[in-house]
Computed example of a mutant assay.
Amino acid sequence: MHFQSLAVILSLGLVNYAACIDYDGWLNIKIEHSLNCGTEKYCPRGNIALKSIRAGAAVVDQIHFNKGHIQALKNLAEIDSFYTIRTLVTSAENSKGTEFFSSVKAKAFLGNGLSDVINAWVLPNGAVIAVSFQVTNASQPLSLESGTQKINSNFYLRYVEQAPVPDTATYIQKLEREREAREKGDLKDNKSFLAKYWMYIVPIAIFVMISGASNPEPAAQGAR
């Protein structure tokens, strides 16, 4: 198979992305698809290699689709089925690799001239938690003049910011200090009477109002 090498530079927020990554090292993403694979369920479609996650520069090698690939894709499109890719992500910290699956409608992939976007979602520690595959929005019909078709791919690393972790230890220490202060009498309870006992007062008030509404006082009789 003939492979085409594409050097893809991440242009969207590359400086900010690099500053958010704590880990740096190599990353490799092997791409397979379920198209024209013969007896195999998945067969090679290409590879994405990064020497540095921080730098974000990737080299994408991909096969050209032949007539067999295009016909298999058209067969999927006729039944409104999906075109699926499987990616295996390996790195210096994960030599065994992590597997991800992603699919798009075959009709959409054909209608956009085999143009797609592959995103790798990365945590600050450099771990890839997802690889997504989607078609572009612009319509680029296939040129049927040649026997092979080029896959037009854009690859991006996407930074995933982790949610803040609650500072449980500090909160427990604060509660402990307040408890010790109450035991020593240093901490005064400045709550009002209503703030302290509202849970008792409110039910009584509601009961009184309901009783007054259901048992109205009889109207005074007029003087004779």
Results as ranks from 00 to 15, higher is better:
95 S>G: 10
17 Y>W: 08
133 F>W: 05
199 M>P: 04
159 Y>A: 09
88 L>I: 13
116 D>I: 11
159 Y>Q: 05
52 S>M: 05
60 V>D: 05
142 L>F: 04
149 Q>Y: 13
217 E>Y: 09
31 I>V: 09
208 V>G: 03
9 I>S: 15
175 L>R: 06
134 Q>I: 08
224 R>A: 14
8 V>K: 04
96 K>M: 07
37 C>V: 03
212 G>Q: 14
45 R>V: 10
131 V>A: 07
122 V>Q: 06
217 E>K: 09
31 I>T: 03
109 F>T: 02
18 A>T: 11
17 Y>M: 15
33 H>F: 06
102 S>K: 06
63 I>F: 05
40 E>R: 07
56 G>F: 06
206 I>S: 08
17 Y>H: 12
140 Q>T: 14
215 N>Y: 11
66 N>V: 09
126 G>C: 01
202 V>D: 05
13 G>L: 11
120 A>G: 07
125 N>R: 07
22 D>W: 01
93 E>H: 10
70 I>D: 01
115 S>M: 04
22 D>G: 08
112 N>Q: 15
32 E>P: 06
198 W>S: 04
3 F>I: 11
13 G>P: 08
88 L>F: 03
27 L>Q: 01
162 Q>E: 10
1 M>K: 12
133 F>G: 06
171 Y>R: 11
213 A>H: 09
14 L>C: 11
38 G>D: 03
88 L>Y: 04
53 I>F: 00
44 P>M: 07
175 L>Q: 07
176 E>L: 11
121 W>T: 00
181 A>R: 06
68 G>M: 10
177 R>Y: 07
188 K>I: 03
178 E>S: 04
76 L>P: 03
105 K>S: 08
16 N>L: 14
75 N>K: 14
154 N>S: 13
38 G>T: 00
223 A>V: 08
173 Q>G: 14
58 A>I: 00
149 Q>W: 10
211 S>M: 15
70 I>G: 02
186 D>W: 14
42 Y>P: 02
120 A>Q: 02
115 S>N: 09
222 G>T: 09
222 G>R: 12
122 V>W: 00
60 V>F: 02
184 K>L: 13
13 G>I: 05
171 Y>H: 12
58 A>T: 04
81 S>Q: 09
65 F>E: 01
165 V>T: 13
156 Y>L: 12
192 S>M: 02
46 G>E: 07
186 D>G: 08
110 L>Y: 04
11 S>W: 06
63 I>R: 09
114 L>Y: 09
103 S>A: 09
100 F>Y: 06
24 D>T: 01
94 N>Q: 09
194 L>G: 07
89 V>P: 04
129 I>Q: 10
103 S>R: 06
59 V>R: 07
167 D>A: 04
193 F>V: 05
20 C>S: 15
135 V>Y: 01
221 Q>H: 10
207 F>I: 15
176 E>S: 14
163 A>G: 10
125 N>I: 06
153 S>Y: 03
170 T>K: 12
168 T>K: 13
57 A>I: 10
141 P>M: 00
161 E>D: 12
200 Y>D: 15
80 D>K: 12
147 G>T: 13
108 A>H: 13
122 V>K: 03
133 F>P: 02
14 L>S: 15
169 A>T: 11
150 K>M: 11
64 H>R: 05
122 V>D: 04
